[in-house]
Amino acid sequence: MKRRDLVIAALIVGGLVLASAVAVARLAGDPVGLLTRDAAASAGLPPYTGVISTFTVMVWFAAGTLSAFIAWTDGKHRRRLAPFAYLLLALAADDALLLHESVGPRLGIHELLIYAVYGLGALRIAYLMLGEERIVALAFWTGAALLAISVLVDVAFLGAYLLEDGAKLLGVLVWSTVPLLAHSAPRAAVPVLGLDRALEHRSQPG
């Protein structure tokens, strides 16, 4: 891929998003500004409404993009960071678009089922992280534990917003360090449980 193709791809993605917004607005019979404007401004709410939620979504996307970039440019970590990037970006979209809270239930998909899919993905990545340096795996598991607390509070303790959203923010911030720690790890770093070579061998054909 030529470097200029990245710019073209970015413009195409942006165009598709805007075209989709116009199509959805027409189907719903709403003005397109309902999809493009800030929700707090449209509702006449204070400008700081949802600031933690907005910041969390920004960190989700930043961590996912960073993981994807390092997976693309650093072959040593590609097998672990590529699925991690997919999970981060999926969670970012979920958090931004309320997929598990609103969209899923409207389509007949229970919230717990969506959580289960994310959980299985996280468990798969946790297994892959056994081949990373200890600090990288520790950062992943710490972030996963904080996010699990957020999910537990969301399901069992409705209304505890500070605990739920606070644990989520801390979890994604810790997860955002995973690609940086992996990329900066010394080449001779000792993986968790010494499984790096075993994982490398299983990934080879034949």
Results as ranks from 00 to 15, higher is better:
H183G: 01
L193P: 12
S67M: 04
Y115S: 08
G166L: 07
A25Q: 05
A63V: 08
Y115P: 01
L45R: 09
E200V: 13
V59L: 08
L195P: 03
A62R: 03
Y127C: 10
V151L: 10
D154F: 02
A10R: 10
A21F: 08
R79I: 12
Y118R: 06
I114W: 01
V174H: 02
G33A: 09
V13Q: 12
G119Y: 01
V153Q: 00
A96S: 14
L199F: 11
S67Y: 02
G194H: 13
P46Y: 02
V178Y: 04
A189V: 02
E101I: 05
L128H: 05
I70P: 00
I125M: 02
Y161A: 12
S53D: 13
L6N: 06
T54K: 14
T73C: 06
K2S: 11
V192L: 15
V17T: 11
L173Y: 07
L87W: 06
W60M: 09
Y118T: 05
A126C: 13
L170R: 06
I12K: 10
R187H: 09
A39S: 11
K168E: 13
A40Y: 03
G75H: 11
A182K: 01
G166K: 03
D95Y: 05
L98F: 14
A156I: 06
E132N: 05
G50Q: 07
G171T: 03
F84L: 10
P83G: 11
P205A: 15
L11I: 09
H110F: 05
G44Q: 08
F157I: 12
R187V: 05
D94Q: 06
A139K: 01
L130W: 07
I114H: 03
V22T: 04
A71E: 03
A144W: 09
